[in-house]
């Protein structure tokens, strides 16, 4: 099959590869500890670990967008670092 029409690049392929790996890890985690690990965190409503992954990914996307808006001259890798810290915080406290 020819996928040239999708205009793949190495960075975008890695991006989707990482998201796919995250989903695989979450599936394995769920198989090991079923139920989704629901808990009430700082947002004062119940979240499962799937919710936390969603909030982490969505928040990371906005961190990158705001980084581009506020610091156009600085490297985007800093936004990636902040996103990782943010995701860890979400999984720890949300």
């Amino acid at each position: 099959m020819n996928f040239n029409w999708m205009a793949w690049t190495a960075p975008t392929a890695s991006f989707f590869g990482i998201i796919f790996c995250l989903l695989v890890i979450m599936t394995i985690w769920e198989l090991k500890c079923p139920g989704g690990g629901p808990r009430i965190g700082i947002l004062r409503f119940e979240t499962t670990r799937g919710d936390r992954l969603f909030v982490s990914l969505l928040g990371s996307a906005f961190i990158h967008i705001f980084w581009l808006a506020l610091f156009p001259g600085l490297s985007l890798y800093w936004a990636l670092v902040f996103s990782c810290i943010y995701a860890l915080a979400v999984f720890r406290w949300v």
Binding site: W5, M6, A7, W8, T9, P11, T12, F15, F16
Partner: peptide, 12 residues
């Protein structure tokens, strides 16, 4: 798959 394609287009 269309969403993936859009992501690919957005950086090119």
């Amino acid at each position: 798959i269309p969403l993936m394609t859009v992501v690919n287009y957005s950086v090119q």
